[in-house]
Design a protein around this nucleic acid. Structure first.
Length: 308
DNA sequence: AGTAGAACCTGAGCGC
DNA sequence: TGCGCTCAGGTTCTAC
């Protein structure tokens, strides 16, 4: 579940449990995910308090009380499952009958009980997570976990190259005019490029392009000219509205994803084009069908009549 | 320089 | 039931 709205949903859910809590113990069950875990990953986390949970693009950032940062990317299939301290809730979710871990649970964070957190921040809920257990599950292991030294966040190789935050104040007409100028790459590819706008993924690019009435195959550079200012404004508005609507819906749930609280998002019911090849265009006046095509190896869904 | 395609992994779904 | 094929929310490296 890994585009910006899903990551934001996860951060909000984890914030209520982890912010102000202390990490008592970490189970590290393999050497790494997409990349190897840093040296002494678990021991360096143990005993630390999580001061703040934030998000940058699709990255989850947990600031620790020693100013180091735990950086997490969910890849394609990464997810967290939170269980409150009292035994194991939701039996069978990720433990089998013998109580052994789900095969793809690679990391488990055991938080200290509330009594062990005298320094909990005012906005932390002291009794929300008595010794909560937070498991990280990721079958395909495209996810990332790293521990960034104090002051090293801005220069981190994964964050340094990111473009403007999709829901941030820097996503402006002027910025995109500069970024798209002279680009012959398809608009779809330009929007997926995290170096330009950080946070969009395949689903929300398709959705935003349909809302904006712009064709995914159109050269990005054609939106950079002064004559395309209105179209560019439409695109920015569509991106922001699509993402905000998705966040409000708790993200999108494909297949069996459930959020950390066991809840699933429901924005997938609001998809206008994604996964709807062969179905009628949602624009009532249109009457055409949603088409599916491959762009740089990924599925693009669009309405050839509405999107120009 | 810029772009398609493969690669990294596993699981689900479908047709036969 | 089982096999083989395609596809999947992301990112990065290689080859034209």
């Amino acid at each position: 579940m890994p585009e910006l709205p899903e990551v934001e949903t996860v951060v909000r859910a984890l914030r209520g449990v982890m912010e102000g809590a202390r990490i008592a113990r970490v189970e590290v069950r393999r050497d790494g995910l997409r990349f190897p875990f840093p040296q002494r990953f678990g021991p360096r986390l143990e005993g630390r308090e999580i001061v703040r949970m934030t998000r940058r693009a699709k990255y989850i950032l947990a600031t620790l009380d020693d100013d180091a940062t735990l950086l997490v990317h969910l890849g394609m299939t990464g997810r967290f499952i939170v269980e409150a301290g009292e035994g194991f809730g939701a039996p069978g979710r990720h433990h089998n009958e013998e109580g052994t871990a789900f095969p793809h649970e690679h990391i488990v964070f055991h938080l200290a009980g509330s009594a062990a957190r005298p320094n909990a921040r005012p906005n932390a809920r002291p009794d929300a997570s008595p010794g909560a257990r937070i498991g990280y599950i990721d079958p395909r292991r495209f996810g990332i976990m790293d521990l960034v030294a104090p002051g090293g966040l801005a220069g981190h190789r994964l964050l340094a190259a990111l473009g403007v935050e999709a829901l941030g104040p820097d996503l402006t007409r002027a910025y995109l005019q500069g970024a798209f100028a002279g680009k012959r790459a398809p608009l779809k590819a330009a929007l997926l490029d995290q170096r330009i706008i950080a946070g969009l993924g395949n689903i929300y690019v398709c959705e935003a392009l349909h809302r904006a009435g712009l064709a995914p195959g159109r050269a990005a550079g054609t939106l950079a000219g002064a004559g395309a200012a209105k179209a560019l404004d439409r695109l920015i508005g569509a991106i922001v509205r699509t993402l905000n609507d998705a966040i409000a819906a708790g993200g999108s749930t494909l297949r069996d994803f459930a959020g950390p609280n066991g809840n699933s998002g429901y924005f997938q019911h609001d998809f206008r084009v994604y996964g709807r090849g062969g179905q009628p265009c949602p624009n009532l006046a249109c009457g055409d069908m949603i088409h599916r095509m491959a762009q740089s190896g990924r599925s693009t869904y669009f309405c050839p009549a509405c999107q120009k």
